[in-house]
Design a protein around this nucleic acid. Structure first.
Lengths: 345, 345
DNA sequence: TTGAAAGCGCTAACAA
DNA sequence: TTGTTAGCGCTTTCAA
């Protein structure tokens, strides 16, 4: 079978009796090329179905016009929404985006970063894996002059730009709210402290207890894999042991839904018997019965912001700026699930 | 500031008094290189922090090891889950994935495909935009010998490999179920027929009516943007006009949730007064009150399958196979929202 | 088993 | 305004 080779600028040059460098200039709208030539070249390019080869251009210019994204799970609502923001910004600035998943596993994250470096991405946006015990692989990118910006989560000890939520303050305020609604014995369903977001949220909750002068022995912080299913089992178990809390503070919404299910199935009610709050404001939190009190995290804006910061950094090349932390505002959304009502008798 | 240039195979060659071609072979585990040299080269590479440059290798071999993905929205649950499957397969075969969003807009899709071609992806996985009135831009890729495989949705008139759900059959069965539960006047909330999935589901519903011998005048198919909000407004409006249907068949879950909200707010109950079913089996469908009858779409498996088919095609280069349609099994999940109960008085 | 040399398609400094 | 030329970092054929 005859495979016709792709048209190159040399083919166009030959067809027009021009030099390939003129073709290159014309196609890139370089100023020092006559309008006439430019038109002629573009017409011929179209005629010959010319498709530029970025690989070659990138090799030559040592610019790939690509940014890499490293996240735990694409399919998690928060991350896929952040990616939407990253994509939108990248596209508007003419950058490609390569996405890699780590599944919260350090080895995968190392691999990811390595492939991204091999592919000569110009910068990396990362939400580090939960259980990272070292960050050499991230540091390696920075050592190779590839900027690595963190969003949502960050790696302790890595001096770089971060775009985060104010997890500490938000958790503190939410805990205040629960206490204000009469809760004292709160069960927290948290991810592992090795991820900055969970460690900060835990601290916020503890600080709320301290501020309100409540004995910390009433606070039950439980670290677990944050899934609907795990939360369901855990809370069910808790209830069966007679340790019914005043409130369940789940550090994401899916977990809160699992908790609510376990509570309802045990002939207890939310919020009459147990208050429940979540974190993330998933699309369904509002529609759920009871509607879920949660925190609105501007994932899309976060993606946009961190992508914009990276691209501007790449284009300005402000070598001086080594780190900057931006905190995005999150918002408590108080709904039915945390508003204490008298039990209907 | 002194920017030290990245190490190349030439640097390694110089350091070891070898030729760069030997370095290349050693690093790629080419058989015709002595074990001793290989070890020496790899050690030196590590010592010098050598980072391979895929751009150069790709240009030389004319292989980018990258596949492009074109979808409407990354943040939609179905697509982000499919991407997870695509990523997993791609990674295991050593391919990168570039993801682009079309937002269901044809122009964006054209741009997407063009960038992917410029980046010399080896193949494209696409779920075409909803309102495509032409497919020239997709055909263009195929004309350039870049295979384009469709998943979930497909472009009419494009002869290529497709991995789909059996939308027609599934919709038919679901409609049968509703009728069996006593519904006759069904309101369908559908996306636009220009997308294959919606056109096929509509046909399935119509065929169910015909099969069951029910007059089609009782069937109200409404095309709209499928969002929770739009569904809410539409159903609310319907009820206020006194046109309460027996059942609402929403062609995705988010839309079903909107419909349920509108119904509940009008002092009607699901399923007592109106049956409601959805499509997709979003994570919360099960936890919702009432739990939502829907269709389980194996998005992750679909992503895996279509990615695997593409990669095997790329590696085998079976030029003969021009098209193949795989239909994945989807599953009706019957839950509370569609099971007719007597109204409690 | 290793080396020499050419070239993938493009850009850009310099020359004309 | 256009042409000449070199080279980005790698792979691969052919020769040694």
């Amino acid at each position: 079978m005859e495979v016709k080779k792709a048209t190159t600028i040399h083919d166009i040059a030959r067809a027009l009796n021009l030099n390939s460098s003129t073709i290159s200039r014309a196609l890139n709208d370089h100023p020092r090329v006559s309008q006439k030539t430019r038109d002629k070249v573009k017409a011929k390019a179209k005629e010959l179905n010319y498709q530029p080869n970025n690989l070659a251009a990138n090799l030559r210019t040592n610019k790939s016009n690509t940014i890499g994204v490293v996240i735990p799970f694409v399919s998690r609502y928060f991350f896929s929404t952040a990616i939407a923001g990253i994509e939108d910004i990248a596209q508007s600035y003419g950058y490609n985006v390569i996405i890699t998943q780590t599944k919260d596993i350090t080895e995968k994250e190392q691999e990811s970063i390595n492939t991204l470096l091999n592919s000569r991405v110009e910068g990396i946006l990362i939400s580090p894996a939960m259980y990272n015990d070292n960050i050499e692989h991230i540091q390696k990118a920075i050592d190779q002059q590839i900027p690595v910006f963190c969003f949502d989560r960050y790696a302790e000890g890595l001096q770089t730009t971060r775009v985060l939520m104010d997890d500490h303050k938000t958790a503190l305020l939410m805990c205040d709210h629960l206490i204000q609604q009469g809760a004292q014995k709160i069960t927290v369903l948290s991810g592992y402290k090795t991820a900055s977001i969970y460690s900060n949220r835990q601290k916020g909750i503890i600080d709320s207890y301290i501020k309100q002068g409540i004995d910390l022995k009433h606070l039950n912080i439980n670290e677990m894999e944050l899934s609907t299913h795990k939360a369901y089992s855990y809370v069910k178990d808790l209830i069966s042991k007679g340790k019914v809390p005043d409130a369940v503070y789940a550090l994401n919404d899916m977990t809160a839904f699992g908790a609510i299910k376990a509570i309802s199935e045990n002939n207890l009610s939310v919020p009459e018997d147990v208050l429940v709050v979540g974190f993330s404001n998933e699309p369904l939190a509002e529609l759920f019965t009871p509607s879920l009190t949660t925190v609105n995290q501007p994932a899309y804006e976060m993606g946009k912001l961190v992508a914009k910061k990276l691209i501007l950094h790449l284009e300005d090349n402000e070598e001086l700026l080594t780190s900057e932390t931006s905190i995005l505002k999150s918002e408590l959304i108080i709904r039915e699930s945390s508003l204490r009502k008298k039990r209907k008798i």
